[in-house]
Amino acid sequence: MYEHVKKLFDLGADGYDWQRRSLIPDFDQFYGMAVSLIRPERAAPSILDLGAGTGLLTSFVAAACPQAKLTLIDFSEKMLDQARKRFERHPAEVRFITGDYAEREFPETYDYVVSSLSIHHLEHADKQKLFKKIYRMIRPGGAFINADQAAGETPFFEAFNLREWEREVAATGLPPELIEASKERRKQDRNATVSDQLRWLREAGFADADSVYKRLGFAVFYAPKAK
């Protein structure tokens, strides 16, 4: 399944960023909330982006924290090629890792672990394992921030979210073939409800975890690690 997802994102690497603005309701609020939660106590925090893709989320983070030391991991080399171009002039250290973050062991620790629209591809058991690994990777006082998709809490709201998403995307004027390609990618999604994900985060060790933003099937999860 993951190999099929990789192929889909390889094919869409070149146009991925500009399509996101049409495919994500309230794009600015969604990403803006995630970035606003990064409030480092030092000027050069260490930040890991899981499933970084073209580096879109990390680019917003870098604008807010220009001295941040960035690590981006993704299993699509074509996506990371776009990210490398994006960060050619970043003043601080930037590392790129091609690989599967769900399988990789990270010996380093980070002030922040972030992710956007990636973890929902994992099976639920793999999400739970990943959250435990993330907790171990984060330094005391840091946080995990995940801007991602979420399933509706009931079948009614799952259908409602999808129907409203399709209506809003169609209204953007995005070409029908690109909308259909997005729907094809969504067939590979393994979305979990907000309530399940919050429970898994708490089970992983995060005493505090909440969804600080939610609209339709998109949510921003914030899980700080106690000092």
Rank of each mutant, 00 (worst) to 15 (best):
F9M: 06
P107N: 06
K127F: 08
F218P: 06
L70W: 11
A43W: 10
E158C: 00
R84T: 05
Q29P: 01
D126E: 15
P140T: 14
R167E: 10
L70M: 09
Y110S: 13
A170Y: 09
D148T: 01
F75G: 05
R215S: 09
E77V: 10
S195I: 01
Y135I: 01
Q19G: 05
A68C: 12
H4N: 10
P176K: 10
W18I: 14
D126A: 15
A64M: 13
L72S: 06
F30M: 06
D126V: 14
K183V: 01
L11D: 15
P175V: 02
A52M: 05
A83V: 04
H4P: 04
S59E: 13
I97V: 15
F96G: 03
L174T: 06
Q149I: 07
A64N: 09
A181I: 08
S211A: 15
K6V: 15
P175W: 03
K69M: 15
S182V: 04
G99M: 11
L198Y: 02
L23Y: 07
D26K: 09
W165E: 10
D28I: 05
P66W: 09
F144R: 02
H120D: 04
L201I: 01
K187W: 00
F9Q: 09
A219Y: 00
L23T: 13
S36Y: 06
R139K: 14
V61W: 05
Y101G: 06
K227L: 12
H124R: 11
E166C: 05
P140K: 11
E77Y: 07
A147E: 00
M1K: 04
N191R: 14
S36Q: 11
F160L: 13
T172Y: 13
E105A: 13
L72C: 13
Y110N: 08
R104L: 15
A125M: 04
A125L: 06
L11H: 11
V194A: 02
T193K: 00
